[in-house]
């Protein structure tokens, strides 16, 4: 029974840790499927986290915080669009720039506005997203096997967790069952064809980037308003890059993205759980090994040793209408 409880706990923290990855990964999915590489996921999450926590603590409202997180994150997505769609700049360079601007400005503005060394004030309970306890979660806790699964795994998360997991089927529906989704995928594969059909490539890509911004904003809000009660500098700590790795791992498909993010979240949860405890047969696994594993797996996948990851064909290429 102890083993079972331990497993449920690891899975529970897997869910918590994979939510920001999942949101960022789906965010990247929209923009990369539309043919815009976005390594600025990290930066957009970071500004989202900062804007969310700052607004929540100033206005004392979690939802205003979330709104602000989305707003600022979309603004950064539009900067990326302005550089890489309108001015046909290098998309990777633009993403790198956004990451730097985000990292610097969140710390500097945080320090200037709140004077707590780059942190925002600790959020009170009304300013955060609290856990939602599902009906009967406490009553069934005692039931063997199903009880803990229901009350720990399914119930008791914040609203953003459910939003993240609902975003998976929603994204699938948008991409594969709507006209917008068809066009979005087309513009990532062959923008000239979309243009010939009389649809604006630039406007379509901008809309995809707005979707990206909304999702990274929610991801950031989750970090600073659910996982942590306030913003801490550099709190994304490479999650945007892991999300990008997960996106490649998922071969740019929404449901795969969920499983990839759960896998990476699981590795993270496991490395926290196993810290210092030796495993049978293998002995002590260094923390650094577990931390590096998602990246190593992605490299192996990219090298084509586990299936082949083929990116959208027009990814990274600015569209030039005529020469």
């Amino acid at each position: 029974m102890d083993v079972f409880i331990a497993i449920v706990q690891v899975l529970d923290s897997t869910i918590r840790l994979s939510v920001p990855l999942l949101l960022a990964c789906l965010a990247g999915l929209y923009s990369e499927r539309a043919g815009v590489f976005d390594i600025g996921l990290e930066g957009k999450m970071l500004v989202g986290a900062f804007a969310g926590a700052a607004a929540a603590s100033v206005f004392h409202s979690a939802y205003l915080g979330l709104g602000m997180a989305i707003l600022i994150s979309v603004a950064f997505a539009l900067i990326h669009g302005f550089a890489s769609i309108t001015h046909r700049g290098n998309q990777i360079v633009s993403g790198v720039a956004i990451n730097f601007i985000a990292a610097g400005s969140t710390i500097m503005l945080g320090q200037a506005w709140f004077q707590q060394g780059g942190r925002t004030p600790a959020l009170a309970s009304g300013e955060r997203f609290g856990a939602i306890i599902w009906r009967g979660a406490d009553a069934v806790r005692g039931v063997p096997i199903l009880g803990p699964i229901y009350s720990e795994l399914i119930s008791g998360h914040s609203v953003l967790v459910y939003v993240a997991f609902l975003a998976v089927p929603f994204t699938w529906w948008v991409l594969f069952r709507t006209r917008f989704g068809l066009r979005l995928r087309a513009v990532g594969e062959n923008p000239a064809a979309v243009d010939t059909a009389g649809i604006s490539v630039a406007w379509l890509r901008y809309r995809a980037l707005i979707c990206t911004g909304v999702l990274t904003g929610i991801a950031g809000a989750y970090l600073s308003m659910v996982q942590n009660g306030g913003f801490v500098k550099d709190m994304t700590a490479g999650k945007g890059y892991i999300a990008l790795a997960a996106l490649i791992f998922a071969k740019w498909k929404p449901v795969n993205a969920m499983f990839a993010c759960l896998l990476f979240g699981f590795l993270d949860a496991l490395s926290i759980r196993l810290q210092g405890t030796p495993l049978p047969l293998i002995g002590k696994v260094p923390v650094q090994f577990m931390q590096a594993l998602p990246y190593v797996l992605t490299v192996i996948l990219l090298a084509g040793f586990i299936g082949k990851a083929i990116p959208p064909r027009a990814g990274g290429v600015p569209y030039v209408k005529e020469r």
């Binding site: 900067i79 550089a83 360079v93 633009s94 790198v96 720039a97 956004i98 990451n99 730097f100 601007i101 985000a102 990292a103 610097g104 400005s105 710390i107 500097m108 320090q111 780059g118």
Partner: peptide, 12 residues
């Protein structure tokens, strides 16, 4: 961190 911002703006 002002430098990091400037760095980002220069790259942009």
């Amino acid at each position: 961190d002002m430098i990091v911002i400037i760095q980002g703006l220069v790259i942009l």
